[in-house]
Amino acid sequence: MRIPTLVKGLAAAAILAVSATAALAEKIVVSNWDGYMPKDIAEKFKAATGIDLEVSVHATNEEIMGKVTASGGQGYDVLFVSSPFAEALNKMGLLAPIDAAKIPNLKNLYPEATQLKHDPGNTFSVPYTWGTTGLCYRSDLVKSEPDSWASLLNPADDVKGKTTMLATDRWLMAPAFLLAGKSVNTTEQADLDAARDQLIATKKTLLAYDDTTFYSKLVSGEASLVEAWDGWCNYGIASKPEIKYVIPKEGSDLWVDTMVITKAAANPEGAAKFIDFIMNADNGKWMVENIMYKSPNKAAMDALDPAMLKQYPNMAIAPAELLKFEQLRDLGDGMKAFSKTVSEIMAAK
């Protein structure tokens, strides 16, 4: 009996030794939406820095929030999240400060991109993409070109039953707030009640709430006017040039997807190198050409083929214009009243 035990012990020691050597090879873990960076990013990053990159995928902000809050950020070095979530993670003390000295490519950002309201000076987050939420429509199917949120919320007869709104709570409510001249972050009960009444009336005129296939509904002609993120409208424009995008005259929100480093990161140096790598002009250009979002990275936008800006006019919106719009912020304690209002709208007939 002794000998096998000894052999087992030796084997265990050998395994330990092997894994110890393996741990010496540097590695970082990044969680991102599926397809939101080049497929070969791991090979490229390894070639550039010698660091192994493990990409994990989350389907929504909420999903990664759940994982990170449950584990305190353990197991992740870099996360891609939308700005209100970056803000919440930071307030919960789960993020590491961004050290500008370690990310020289921060210089590629437009000056406006360093002054975002959720994080002026990029102290805990680095913007990856940004854009607006507006109206995406079939110019050949609508009688008059939409120019206001009222075109969606109180639709003319020719588009009734052929409109969709975004289903995610914050973007579901934003058009009603904007039309009423309120902040997209309001949690005043009177504003919530007014938005609820408007949106319940609007619900009867909708084809559907849709976060994921609204642009294909435009392409097929099922819908003729939809609330859309500008980048997603571009997917429709790509297959049907009659599709157009407009920011309503009452304005839009400014949405920003960001990169953050967790406080629990096992390899903060590698994390900074990764963000620096993503910030180079090539990777930024890949994102714009393939995801069709605008980039806050000036070097990437300058590298674009001007024909692209012509085909997708919303890509040419100037950063100074974007900054005029209010960003969605974490609602904190206001979330309970806000989410109850959303339930009221959803339950209404």
């Binding site: 929504t60 909420e62 999903e63 929030m65 759940g66 995610t168 709570d169 979330m335 309970k336 806000f338 989410s339 959303v342 339930s343 959803m346």
Partner: peptide
């Protein structure tokens, strides 16, 4: 929605 969207 309460678990994922409202994070409540």
């Amino acid at each position: 929605d309460q678990f994922l969207t409202a994070r409540d």
